[in-house]
Design a protein around this nucleic acid. Sequence first.
DNA 1: GTAACCGGTATCCTTTAGATAACCGATAAC
DNA 2: GTTATCGGTTATCTAAAGGATACCGGTTAC
Lengths: 122, 122
Amino acid sequence: MSTSASTCRSTHRAVADTLDVIGGKWKLVILSALLERTYRFKELGREIGISPRILSKELQELEQHQLITRTVCNTRPITVEYAATAYCRTLQTVIGALSEWGMTHHQTIVGKPRSGTTASPV
Amino acid sequence: MSTSASTCRSTHRAVADTLDVIGGKWKLVILSALLERTYRFKELGREIGISPRILSKELQELEQHQLITRTVCNTRPITVEYAATAYCRTLQTVIGALSEWGMTHHQTIVGKPRSGTTASPV
DNA sequence: GTAACCGGTATCCTTTAGATAACCGATAAC
DNA sequence: GTTATCGGTTATCTAAAGGATACCGGTTAC
């Protein structure tokens, strides 16, 4: 495998490496949310629309990769705060580029402004 | 859906939109390869290590999104050239950020440099 | 008491991704 | 003829991703 052109670490190899960590449907969405502010578990789940099972799994993986921190707060009903780490902030360029592309080319993607919810101004 | 905090198009929504187009294991890898140079079908398949079935499907989707072009060349054994479009180049920021992150944080990602294949997942 | 919220699991299920390999018609080299 | 390459398609299979929902123990409010 990878016999040809493997001497130079080509771009698409590095991209594949990155996607091993932050690939999938949710990782980057979660990280971008947590880069905006901290979230509690169900609060985050509601915000991005993800089932608790998946969210729990994704958060664990992200924590293992030291991209987020999990903090149990000593409140009356115990709450848990998830926050982006400094290491996560090295991904801000990536996420910034992704979100900007999504905004700029929203029309091209969806065909028109977010259907149904016409209440969302561009 | 999106009752709360939907007035401002938050970052993670734009990220999710983008991932709808270029999400998945292969799309960005393919695009980054095609942004380096053009490829023929099996040549590309060999380069990134993907089965022809998946490659065919991914290329079709990318072509539908006008991110790549498919050109049949009039050579003796017919060859097909795939190339990145101008629209695809608007993704260069994204892919550049991804690949750079992958290179910079390669040790953190894989656990150690690619050589030796002592891939021990954390 | 009931009800609602908290973080998170457990269970079940569907969908997709992806691998493998055979195979097509065409062409070209031998 | 055989063999190989070209760009794909087809079929079959498995593994993984993701979704839906109920539920847990705990606390708080009523």
